[in-house]
Computed example of a mutant assay.
Amino acid sequence: MSELLSRHAEMRMRQRGVQNHLLTTLLTWGDVVVSVGGGDVSITVSRATVRELVASGLRSDWGEKLGRLAVVVTENGTVKTCAIMRQSGRGGRRYRRGV
C-alpha cells in the first residue's frame, strides 16, 4: 500500500486517524469520482454504498468515517492526500462537486 501513497498522504492519514483498511475500502468501493484539477480526481463513497457495506458487515462507526472520507488520486494512481469532510457547510465541497 505504501508504494501507492505520497509522503504527504501518509502524514495526513496519521494526523487524521485514517487507518489503511479504510483507505483500501474507499479505493475499492469509491463510486463518486470528481475532477479536482490538474488531472487529479477526488474519490468518495456515496451514502447508498456506505449503507450497503454496513448491511454486509462493515462496522457502523467505520461506515460513518468512510462516508466522510475523501482521497485525491493523481493520474498515475498515487494517493496524494486524504480529507475528512464535515457534514455541513462549505468544507470539502470541492471534493464533492469538482473544480
Rank of each mutant, 00 (worst) to 15 (best):
S2V: 08
L4G: 11
L4P: 02
S6V: 04
R7N: 11
A9S: 08
A9K: 00
E10V: 09
M11P: 00
M11C: 04
R14K: 14
R14M: 07
R16A: 03
R16D: 03
R16S: 03
G17H: 02
G17R: 03
V18F: 00
Q19E: 09
L22C: 03
L22P: 00
L23S: 01
L23Y: 00
T24I: 12
T24N: 11
T25G: 04
T25R: 04
L26N: 00
L27K: 02
T28R: 10
D31Y: 07
V32F: 02
V32C: 11
V32K: 05
V32Q: 13
V33G: 03
V33F: 02
V34K: 04
S35Q: 09
S35F: 05
G37L: 05
G39V: 04
G39W: 07
V41R: 04
V41I: 14
I43T: 01
T44P: 01
S46C: 11
R47E: 12
A48V: 13
A48E: 15
A48W: 09
T49M: 15
L53T: 09
V54L: 11
V54N: 03
A55N: 14
S56Y: 07
S56Q: 15
G57P: 06
G57I: 12
R59V: 09
S60F: 10
D61K: 15
D61V: 14
D61R: 14
W62C: 05
E64F: 09
L66C: 01
G67Y: 05
G67S: 03
L69V: 00
V73A: 04
T74S: 15
T74N: 14
T74C: 06
T74K: 13
G77E: 07
G77Y: 08
G77K: 06
T78C: 08
V79Q: 05
T81W: 04
C82A: 09
C82S: 08
A83D: 04
A83W: 13
I84Y: 11
M85H: 10
M85K: 12
R86V: 06
S88D: 12
G89A: 10
R90A: 10
G92Y: 07
G92V: 06
R93Y: 05
R94D: 10
R94G: 09
Y95K: 05
R96I: 12
G98E: 06
G98K: 04
V99P: 15
